[in-house]
């Protein structure tokens, strides 16, 4: 009787499997093959060079520097974003002790999430513009002229100015995720804790955190993947892939882009892409393992 089952399953599965094969598996396979060539991208000539590109990559200081920026983002982006999102979520939700106006803040803080990343980037590039930008204007207005700078070209500030944009635009999303899981915690838990003399902080630490752990874990993985990419905001906020700001905040994905589209080294760029793919997979596994905890049923 089994073949009857397959007669039904296969027609349903086939279109999806076909699309997946053509648009996901095949490009991956191609990228891996191209990474073993010195393809320049302007002819069908793709000389096979074996693992040369990977070896060069290993010795390429500019790539390692770019990757180290991703490394810094990997620590800062999840930590800060989740800390802020959790704080907001707790203030607006926890155990029926939400602050006044919580509903209003929830909506307002979610706003940046509905603006496309490119628009966010362009808006903030104006905020950071030195002579007519909002940020320097405010600093000048409150007498802090000494702090005024060209945020997007100064090597000490450019990366963090862009990170701030990323955090601003994503906090709302994680806040909503945390609020949703916090709301599923029965308020009776908190009432019992208050009766036992728990402070607001200890109920957060001992009740909320363990019970929403799964959401935090997922968020860390999302943000880690974002930190390994981080291409769009750098290229848009800094004003282009070869601007001074982009050079000084160059992350691995932007380096990949420039190697392919600016320097016509498609083979090399593909090798960078493959390395980033492996790093992302590896990182996901590590985070999954490292954050595994007993889940509580309630």
């Amino acid at each position: 009787m089994h073949h009857h089952k397959y007669r039904l399953i296969i027609p349903f599965l086939l279109p999806a499997a076909l699309l997946y094969g053509v648009f996901v598996v095949w490009p991956y396979a191609q990228a891996i093959y191209v990474s073993l060539t010195s393809w320049r991208g302007v002819s069908a000539n793709r000389p096979f060079v074996g693992l040369d590109n990977y070896q060069r990559l290993w010795e390429d200081d500019r790539f390692l520097e770019a990757l180290s920026r991703n490394g810094q983002l990997l620590i800062v982006l999840p930590l800060v974003t989740i800390a802020i999102a959790l704080t907001f979520a707790a203030l607006f939700t926890q155990g029926g002790q939400a602050i006044r106006g919580a509903a209003f803040y929830r909506i307002v803080f979610f706003f940046p999430q509905i603006i496309p990343a490119v628009i966010v980037g362009i808006l903030w590039s104006y905020v950071y513009t030195p002579n007519i930008g909002l940020l320097n204007g405010i600093l000048g207005g409150v007498g802090l002229d000494g702090l005024k700078r060209s945020w997007l070209t100064d090597p000490t500030t450019v990366l963090w100015a862009i990170v701030a944009v990323a955090i601003w635009s994503s906090v709302g999303f994680y806040m909503v995720i945390f609020i949703a899981s916090m709301q599923s915690i029965p308020t009776s838990f908190y009432e019992a804790a208050v009766l036992d003399g728990a402070t607001r902080w200890s109920s957060f630490k001992d009740i909320t955190l363990p019970l929403i752990w799964e959401s935090i874990r997922t968020s860390v993985i999302y943000l880690a993947i974002a930190a390994l990419d981080f291409f769009i905001l750098v290229i848009v906020v800094s004003g282009g892939s070869t601007t001074m700001g982009a050079t000084r905040a160059e992350v691995a994905a932007l380096y990949l882009y420039n190697q392919a589209f600016d320097k016509n080294r498609w083979g090399y760029a593909s090798a960078i892409g493959v390395v980033l793919l492996l790093l992302t997979l590896l990182l996901s596994v590590i985070i999954m393992r490292a954050t595994r905890r007993e889940t509580y049923q309630f």
């Binding site: 513009t129 030195p130 002579n131 320097n136 700078r149 060209s150 945020w151 070209t153 100064d154 001074m244």
Partner: peptide
């Protein structure tokens, strides 16, 4: 000009 290092080409030309 102050802030020149943060100006793109059209911004600098406008100034």
């Amino acid at each position: 000009l102050q802030g020149w290092e943060g100006l793109d080409h059209t911004q600098s030309q406008n100034e």
